[in-house]
Design a protein around this nucleic acid. Sequence first.
DNA 1: TTATCTACCAGACAAATGTCTGGTATGTAA
DNA 2: TTACATACCAGACATTTGTCTGGTAGATAA
Lengths: 207, 207
Amino acid sequence: MSPRTQPGRTRERIYQYVRKQLQMGQPPTVREVQHAFGFRAVQTAREHLERLVKEGLLAKRPGKARGYCLPAGKQDGPPPVLIPLLGHVQAGNLNAAIEHPESYLPANARSADKLFALRVRGESMLGAGILPNDIVIVHSQPTAENGEIVVALVDDEATVKRLRLRRNRIELHPENPDFEPILPPPDRCSILGKVTEVRRFIDSPAN
Amino acid sequence: MSPRTQPGRTRERIYQYVRKQLQMGQPPTVREVQHAFGFRAVQTAREHLERLVKEGLLAKRPGKARGYCLPAGKQDGPPPVLIPLLGHVQAGNLNAAIEHPESYLPANARSADKLFALRVRGESMLGAGILPNDIVIVHSQPTAENGEIVVALVDDEATVKRLRLRRNRIELHPENPDFEPILPPPDRCSILGKVTEVRRFIDSPAN
DNA sequence: TTATCTACCAGACAAATGTCTGGTATGTAA
DNA sequence: TTACATACCAGACATTTGTCTGGTAGATAA
């Protein structure tokens, strides 16, 4: 007989394991739970799972392979999607850049279809807490609300700015007093999308 | 014999169906695909799935129930890991907080074992571009280098600050002139880890 | 002491599931 | 015409997977 843990301890860890697997889109079999926790009997794993169902933490489709799931309404959301981090964006080659990204960023989102990521260059958005080399995740859309931070294409150059909607044109405002707003003619500017997330990887310190 | 569709048409719809099921954490069996598309033979569904695998749009674990899945991220790296976002951290309950996370954040990392995430409260790190409600991803370690941004536990309270190492003590410096450095006695302060990433979710604009 | 509960093991069996083999039917190219 | 490719059907079989039955062992309460 294997060593035992205190009541409920292993079951809690099994709950987290199942939850994590479910979020990755890979619901486990009872035997996979068995092996993940080193039990020698399938029934051990099953009993923990059944207790979790009884406690309302898990639900299940009886008799179905990989049938344990989260109760309806307790979804952590869909598994991560991979958002393409684009190297360089110019007018006309957004789709090509999406298909040849520099790398991918995982994110919790329903779909990556309308999402892409860019590196921020320059310090025009310092006041909004967006630093050079930060990565912005962008939801592709041709318009945005007044005040939203957008990625716009101006004269072939992508830029991150705060959108200001005026009566007959748009303005792209920096968040840094050292920079001037951009007031592009409409035929020379298009909105690529709205910034929905900012990410920064922190390396070694400057001291 | 049932009516036929033009080549590739049904397969495209099957691809979208499988993808959607996978994103919901419910990978389908071959027979579920069969029934979803009204085929009378399992093999019809299977052949479409196998063609999708051959085209690289799907991957699969052979012989496993519900084994069709999306290809591993179209990149060479490992699949994303899920980093626990902790709700509240106090001395002594870090492990408990990790086991009851508020949610998970996907990230490209070898392992999530030594990673956790916290929400930033307050404005003491504004100057470093870290705003209130930002999320910091932390690599668990008891020490860090001079100048690194760390999460430390001071008198039961977790705080994000820049570490300054002095001869016989550590200092926790804000990046905002409105705040004073923290000079804790060593027995009342411990380093939980080093900040490796900052994330910010941007909601509706303030106008 | 017995009774009960929890955490584990072992084995067997039924059903779900993946897989294979053999086939029809249609369209296109040689 | 034949050959080939694609989209479908039908049936059988092997394996995976869920489930059940019977058990040990430890802790606690009556």
